[in-house]
Write a protein that binds this DNA or RNA. Structure first.
Lengths: 111, 111
DNA sequence: GGAAAACTGAAGCAGTTACTTAACTATTGA
DNA sequence: TCAATAGTTAAGTAACTGCTTCAGTTTTCC
């Protein structure tokens, strides 16, 4: 479910915007309401809600409304999925370099 | 240099597109020419070059031209920077949860 | 009950993005 | 030399994004 390419797409797309990354950054320090998320951002509350909806659709953030306040928090599992995608590609590349290094070392021995 | 917010912005933006992620994925298995990168993608070579230029500007991919062939390879340091940004936020959240857990366990002892 | 607080949703708009096609510029190899 | 290969660049366009404003809806609290 979390490695579903469509979900991954939404996550990376969500992380591509600086305002949304700032919101994730804020939430990494603890839950916050929509207004609290909006406070440091130079845009209307409405714009923040639109960003938040994207973050929620991507799975990166979970929200729940109690009374008139929507409280938001990070979903670490989703962050881990994005992290994992990058990590796998990087490791794949680095393992390839290692094998190449071994090969070169071996062929050098054979002189 | 790699933790420069502008560079991070370019990286996440580059990773937001499925075609570009597919290119990164291909490159994680080894270097490739522009045509080789284009081969599995349902778009013109010109479009691929445009994607590649973005990937290069973001620092995720390095290319060098020999003769008429441009060979592309992954820049693991850049991947690591993106990975690191996500990882820091996730850990920050998870450490917060741990502290909260400890606190709740302690106050429970005091009954 | 009624004002204030905390959102929410729709419409509109300017700027950006992801393509396309078409016209190029090297390189290579027969 | 000259055709094919590999890539590049520019111009145009359709769709998508990131806002804005404005007009709601719920809750809360006096």
């Amino acid at each position: 479910m979390l490695h579903d390419p469509a979900q991954l797409d939404l996550m990376f797309q969500a992380l591509a915007d600086p305002a949304r990354r700032q919101m994730v950054d804020r939430l990494s320090r603890g839950p916050a309401s929509v207004s609290q998320l909006a406070e440091p951002l130079a845009m209307s509350l409405s714009a923040v809600v639109q960003h938040l909806n994207l973050l929620e659709a991507s799975g990166l953030v979970r929200t729940q409304k109690v009374g008139r306040v929507r409280t938001c928090q990070i979903e670490p599992k989703a962050l881990r999925a994005a992290e994992h995608w990058i990590n796998e590609r990087r490791l794949s590349w680095e393992r390839r370099l290692d094998r190449l290094g071994d090969f070169l070392a071996e062929t050098k021995d054979e002189t």
